[in-house]
Design a protein around this nucleic acid. Structure first.
Lengths: 98, 98
DNA sequence: TTGCTTTATCGTTAATAGGCGATAAACGAT
DNA sequence: ATCGTTTATCGCCTATTAACGATAAAGCAA
């Protein structure tokens, strides 16, 4: 993961609602858009937009299932993100691979 | 660390230049603004603005030393940030304290 | 086909971000 | 008191974001 991709993920997580959506997806593993809409005090279009940004950052995947869309976390990307953040420490910070 | 604070830090890191500045600060531990300006292809005002955002997020501290300002990482906040991200995993995700 | 449900997109508005040059402010030195 | 250095802020412009309602699009059911 390079700086650009990391910054995109961070940007996607730079909004409390999107963090909560991500945490929700992690917790229940997979979720249809409408169920997420029900959990938050925003309109369907707003949540759809948040999901779009999360998807564009790569941290979330969306799969169309009939008329619905099922969202889930991309665990490979999440792991890379976590690894990058974990490695933010003195000296070793700038040498992590992938 | 709550969702709002986390989202602010993520937002601050939602730009590649600010991630690089943070990594630079981590690597050399402490740095005067001018030295950072020299390392990046942007104007002094732009870098100063980036530093301001990093400072407002809490991840970076700025200390005035005479005519200069010395920036360094707030390791307590950085550690909390890293802990929060590390705990983003199935089931346990939403239960971490401070 | 006609409808129903679900989700994505469009259009709008207000606010925020990113970049710059110019200027102000703070301080040390002369 | 003035100058030089360093950093912060202002003003400007453009681009992006956040929110909404309205509408389109996709698929299932009858």
């Amino acid at each position: 993961m390079d700086t650009d991709q990391l910054s995109k993920i961070c940007k996607a997580l730079g909004h409390p609602t999107r963090i909560k959506i991500l945490e929700h997806l992690i917790k229940i593993n997979s979720c249809v858009c409408g169920e997420i809409v029900d959990k938050f005090p925003f309109s369907q279009s707003t949540i759809s937009q948040h999901l779009k940004l999360l998807k564009e950052s790569g941290i979330v995947l969306g799969e169309v299932e009939g008329p619905k869309t099922c969202y889930c976390v991309d665990n490979a990307i999440l792991d890379k993100f976590k690894a990058y953040v974990s490695n933010l420490k003195c000296g070793v910070t700038n040498e992590q691979k992938n």
